[in-house]
Simulated scan of single mutants.
Amino acid sequence: MRILLVGATGTLGRSVRDVLGERGHEIVTASRGGSDVSVDITDTESIRAMYGKVGEVDAVASAAGGVPWLPFGELSHQDVLDGVVGKVISQVELVRRGTAHVTGSFTLITGVLARDPVRTGTVASLANGAVEAFVRAAAIELPQRVNAVSPTVFTESVGAYGDLFAGFEPVPVRRAANAYVRSIEGHQTGQVYEIG
């Protein structure tokens, strides 16, 4: 399959690229820099241009989306907007603008905070929950399949985020990458694959 991988340069994106490449797929990478195609997923025009350059693909795998990590009392209106745009609207637009270019499936990224929140993660919980609700709803209407991968903290990221996830069992990033294989090569739609 020809797969567009968005967010290809991060910890998860690199692992997804490795796993899909090992399975013989042709991977077209996209990110802000260092990829086959440059894209800013918070900019709908950039998403449109990316699809114009890439053309038709069998699947889109999204491993991108940022949110602010701040105590609730310190969150500004702009912080909330940035998180919703950075992780929710950006991925909704990947699907919305991609329907004319994608023949098979979309796989989006959420996370454990949709179901198990932590301090300073309010916007992450909001965004993850919204993406998961979107996946379930969009699956009813889209001709393409759409799923989400929802991992806990990665073993490889414990040094950066471990204190926020006290008591959570970390998982190797490759476990999450394998869920992308399940989503892309499988037949289910409207699923949220919880990892860890």
Rank of each mutant, 00 (worst) to 15 (best):
V37L: 10
G24Q: 06
K87C: 05
I109Q: 08
V153C: 06
S183Q: 08
V102F: 01
V80N: 02
D116W: 13
L70P: 00
E26M: 02
L142W: 05
S15W: 03
Q188R: 11
V95L: 09
S90C: 06
D79F: 03
K53I: 05
T120H: 12
R182K: 13
T11G: 09
V135P: 00
N128V: 13
V123Q: 04
V171W: 08
G162E: 01
G190Y: 08
A100S: 14
T44I: 10
R119G: 05
S46P: 01
F134A: 01
A130E: 04
V123P: 06
V131Q: 02
F72K: 00
G55H: 03
E156N: 10
V131A: 05
P172D: 14
A176D: 01
S90E: 04
L126P: 00
L70V: 13
N128M: 05
V92G: 05
D58E: 13
E185D: 13
V57P: 00
T110I: 09
G129Q: 09
R14F: 07
T120I: 14
V173K: 07
F168G: 00
P71R: 10
R14S: 13
S35L: 06
V192C: 12
L113T: 15
V57F: 04
R2I: 04
P68W: 15
G129F: 14
G162T: 03
H77M: 10
Q78V: 13
G52W: 05
I3S: 10
E56M: 11
D40A: 08
S125E: 06
Q91H: 09
L75V: 08
Y193V: 13
G98D: 04
L164R: 14
A133C: 04
R32Y: 08
G104K: 15
I27T: 12
K53P: 00
L94S: 03
G162D: 03
G65C: 12
R145K: 13
L108M: 11
V28K: 01
P71T: 08
M50T: 02
F106W: 11
S38D: 03
V16L: 07
E141Y: 14
I89W: 10
T155D: 09
V131M: 06
E74F: 10
S46L: 02
S38C: 06
V102K: 00
G111V: 11
F168V: 15
A176N: 02
R23F: 02
S46M: 05
A124P: 00
Q191T: 15
A177P: 07
E93G: 00
I184L: 14
T103S: 15
Q188H: 11
G10H: 12
D43E: 01
V39M: 10
G121M: 01
A177R: 09
Q78R: 14
V146H: 07
R97Y: 07
M50A: 02
G190Q: 09
A64N: 06
F168I: 13
R2W: 02
V158Y: 01
L20P: 00
I89K: 02
V92D: 01
A63F: 04
S183N: 11
V149C: 09
Q188G: 09
R175S: 12
A59Y: 08
T120E: 09
K53S: 15
R2F: 02
R14E: 13
M50R: 00
S76W: 07
V112Q: 14
F106I: 08
T44D: 09
E156G: 07
E22Q: 15
A133D: 11
D58I: 02
D163R: 15
N128L: 06
S62E: 01
